[in-house]
């Protein structure tokens, strides 16, 4: 038996945190099967009525919208994140590299509210885009960008881009540049070398990036709430409304549970969908 100093002292606090987290999740699960007593914050007896209520088309619509928005956001983020990650990893010069990294990473640390607010200023009827286009005479009336799924997706792509770039860059940075050189020495042009070697070798990063982007978008609240303005509703918005407008916490809990199951299901599906990609990737 090897000696293992500090083991107990170092594991216990982490275990305590894990227990607290599991307890919080269990609380959600438990509330989801309790009855809602209007006018009271305490839940009633055990029931499945919350889940039955979720079958209404209204909620189905929100789930579908949420999944769709998450999916589109993840794909768009991948498409625009990849060139940036590639440039970041292959950039020559420490300054250029650092500058790009700071530009990409800073938004990650600004939080959802500040970033969403900035997009309101960009997209609003009196916002940047509309004022500039009006002034240039390219449009006659302001474009409706706020309260549309386009606006929500745009802002969400902006929100998820940093984490996507970081994950892709982490994968790309571990690919030896000699692979690309080898391909070129064997007659592959830069594009073919990229497609046949670098891209397949970066699939772990793509899978990690897409699933994380999906999960983060699913978790977004301020962006759909403020930019969607009630016109675009995601699961998060509904949960908040049920909790803090109607104080129907049991229903909010059941919605969260179904949302969680849905999110995990979608992520599993995404991974399965990306498996053919992984098959060409490194084993």
């Amino acid at each position: 038996m090897p000696r293992r100093p500090f083991l107990r002292a170092f594991v216990s606090p982490a275990a305590l945190c894990a227990i607290a987290f599991v307890a919080a999740m269990a609380a959600v699960l438990q509330f989801s099967v309790r009855a809602y007593i209007p006018g009271s914050l305490d839940p009633g007896g055990f029931t499945l009525v919350n889940f039955a209520a979720l079958l209404k088309p209204l909620y189905g619509r929100v789930f579908l919208d949420t999944v769709w928005i998450c999916f589109i956001t993840a794909v768009c983020t991948l498409v625009i994140g990849y060139p940036v990650a590639y440039a970041l990893v292959r950039a020559k010069g420490a300054f250029l590299k650092s500058a790009m990294l700071i530009v990409v990473v800073t938004p990650l640390f600004l939080g959802e509210v500040v970033r969403t607010y900035s997009w309101i200023v960009v997209l609003g009827n009196n916002g940047f885009v509309n004022t500039v286009l009006l002034k240039l005479g390219m449009i006659e009336r302001p474009l409706q960008l706020m309260f549309t799924s386009f606006g929500v997706v745009l802002a969400l792509v902006h929100v998820t881009l940093p984490v996507m770039v970081i994950m892709l860059a982490a994968a790309l940075s571990h690919i030896d540049p000699d692979y690309e050189r080898a391909a070129e020495s064997l007659g592959a042009g830069p594009i073919r070398a990229f497609l046949s070697v670098t891209l397949p070798l970066s699939t772990p990063g793509i899978v990690a990036g897409v699933t994380t982007a999906f999960a983060w978008t699913f978790s977004a609240f301020a962006t759909p709430q403020l930019i969607g303005g009630g016109q675009v509703n995601m699961v998060s918005n509904l949960v908040y409304q049920l909790g803090f407008a109607s104080f129907n916490f049991p229903f909010a809990a059941s919605l969260s549970v179904v949302g969680l199951v849905l999110a995990f299901g979608m992520i599993a599906l995404l991974r399965a969908g990306l498996r053919p990609l992984e098959a060409v990737g490194p084993q």
Partner: peptide
């Protein structure tokens, strides 16, 4: 990977 609103609610 768990949505923050779920964790907050929990």
């Amino acid at each position: 990977v768990i949505p923050h609103f779920t964790i907050g609610l929990g």
